[in-house]
Simulated scan of single mutants.
Amino acid sequence: MPRTVRRITVGTVMLGTIAAGTLPATAVQAMPTTPATDREITFTVDGTTTYGTLHIPAHRRGQKMPAVLLLPGSGPTDRNGDQPPALTPHTLAKLAGALAHDGVVSLRFDKYGTGRTGLGAYAGRPETLDHPAFVRQAATAYRLLAGQPEVNRRAVRLIGHSEGALTALRVAVAAEPRTAGVGLLQPLAKRFLDVLAQQLHDQLAAAVAAGQMSRQEQLTLGRAVDRAVADFRAHRPPDTSAMPPALADLFRALDGPSRRYVETIDAIDPVAVAYQLPRRTPVLLTCGTIDPQVPCHMTTPLAVALERAHTRGPGRIVLSGVAHGLTDPANPDVLAPATLDALGRFMRYGAR
């Protein structure tokens, strides 16, 4: 989501002769025999090698486990959900850890422009990188995950955070094998530039409420924002003449090498994509009550579309006291309990 302002580690279970002898035979058989591990994986799509981490929880030898492909938010967000060095919330790494605790395999990867993957084949022509390229990258990762020997290919799900939720939706429409569920965590719930404009309008309103600008200034800047969005959609350079420097710089940056990406992602309405999901697909949609980037009211049209598309639960879950990064600001180092509860409900729903 555009920002307008700036393992469990499971050791090998050691069963000595005394310990094993004190347990029923069925309990010994249920003990994990293969320790948890992180496996570095690579795959190639559109001439670029993508690098990722496959986390395998502790499990019985030969066991087939459910799995999740984790997709990050906007900007240069890497496989862990970070934009180093400044922003390191570890959002996807935390999700992978929570899933592993429940015996779920996960795959997360460095998308284009991040981590070891970098721009790859697009390095000399970043202006040609578009949103469909990210969808192809994610779809390839999904098929790779489904083919892992430890994975139950009938129980592979997609979970996307923020902008990654739109990518998850698009992959799920034609996923092979069919996805066992789609998790949309604090998702891009409207067209990209509509979300950006709403965030800017909300910030202007907050500035007026705080006495930092006049109502007339708010109206003037609000019209300038709407005009810049209209320019983008008409394939014109955005008019930034009536904007203060920081706001003008934002729109000029969108008009730079990433313009094709912005135009192609803005052309997608998440609500329209939701109607294309296979019937009875289990879906989780979350919103946080203290998330200014994706306030809950912004997700309502998407939630309605998912219901009308005859998807299954758990549906939309409102996370009380949870911010955009899926945490409670009072304890930002861990996922909020409400987030973990919603994640658990989603993974249990329709489990096969």
Rank of each mutant, 00 (worst) to 15 (best):
Gly256Phe: 06
His297Asn: 15
Thr9Glu: 09
Gly62Met: 02
Glu40Phe: 04
Pro32Thr: 01
Pro301Asn: 08
Glu176Arg: 13
Ala138Gln: 03
Ile18Glu: 14
Val5Ile: 10
Leu23Asn: 06
Ala100Gln: 10
Gly160Thr: 03
Leu335Ala: 05
Thr53Asn: 13
Leu95Val: 09
Val208Cys: 01
Asn152Cys: 13
Arg252Tyr: 08
Ala209Leu: 14
Leu71Asn: 03
Leu184Glu: 01
Gly81Leu: 04
Tyr122Glu: 00
Thr289Glu: 12
Glu263Thr: 12
Leu302Cys: 05
Ile317Ser: 05
Thr289His: 05
Leu319Cys: 09
Pro187Val: 00
Asp46Ile: 05
Gln186Leu: 10
Arg157Met: 04
Thr311Met: 08
Gly62Phe: 00
Ser320Asp: 15
His310Glu: 14
Ile290Asn: 08
Pro57Ala: 07
Gly124Val: 07
Leu158Asn: 02
Pro301Arg: 01
Leu184Ala: 04
Ala141Arg: 04
Pro24Ser: 11
Pro76Trp: 09
Leu247Glu: 05
Gly21Glu: 06
Gly52Val: 08
Gln198Thr: 13
Leu277Gln: 11
Pro126Glu: 05
Val318Asn: 00
Ala138Val: 01
Thr114Trp: 02
His235Asn: 15
Ala96Gln: 06
Thr117Gly: 04
Ala246Asn: 14
Leu169Gly: 08
Tyr122Ala: 10
Pro76Arg: 12
Ala274Arg: 00
Ala230Ile: 06
Leu196Gly: 03
Thr220Leu: 13
Leu204Ser: 11
Gln83Ile: 14
Asp266Trp: 02
Ala189Ile: 06
Leu285Glu: 04
Thr33Asp: 00
Ala25Leu: 14
Gly350Cys: 08
Ile56Gly: 00
Thr114Ser: 13
Glu263Asp: 14
Arg153Ile: 08
Ala248Asp: 07
